[in-house]
């Protein structure tokens, strides 16, 4: 591996918001490109479906274009998969797991059990 001190110095002076914007735009461009390949769709076909010129699509794929949510939604509809997804907060879920013949130790009983032959225990997990 090789580093370049002058390049590292330049990277250190890049504003964090510019770094984030570039990273996001590149990720989106790469995602659209990968979805085109997955759908075996040419840029020309995609341009026609989006109602755009091919040159505009080409620019999209370089990461130089800032997308609106409207356009991202349309792209997702055309390509059949989301382009970007918003991370959702943690969700608490309860799962009841049937365990044949399981006898709960009394101190862990949480009121979920019905009979000795078809016992259940509940498990809490974060999504």
């Amino acid at each position: 591996m090789k580093k370049n001190p002058l390049f590292d110095k330049c990277v250190a002076t890049v504003a964090p918001e510019v770094m984030e914007e570039v990273s996001l735009n590149v990720d989106i461009a790469n995602r659209i490109y990968d979805l085109l390949k997955k759908n075996k769709m040419t840029q020309r076909e995609f341009a026609a479906l989006m109602g755009k010129r091919e040159s505009e699509i080409s620019r999209w794929l370089t990461g130089s274009h800032g997308f609106t949510t409207t356009t991202l939604s349309k792209i997702a509809a055309v390509l059949g998969e989301p382009v970007v997804e918003v991370k959702k907060g943690p969700e608490v879920r309860y799962v009841f797991v049937p365990v044949q013949g399981f006898i709960t130790p009394s101190e862990s009983y949480d009121g979920s059990y019905n009979d000795r032959n078809h016992s259940y225990f509940s498990m809490k997990y974060f999504n």
Partner: peptide, 17 residues
């Protein structure tokens, strides 16, 4: 510089970029 950093650290020189 940010694009080059992204290519070096993450995606490489992808042809679409």
């Amino acid at each position: 510089i940010a694009v080059l950093r992204k290519m070096v650290d993450d995606c490489g020189a992808r042809e679409n970029l």
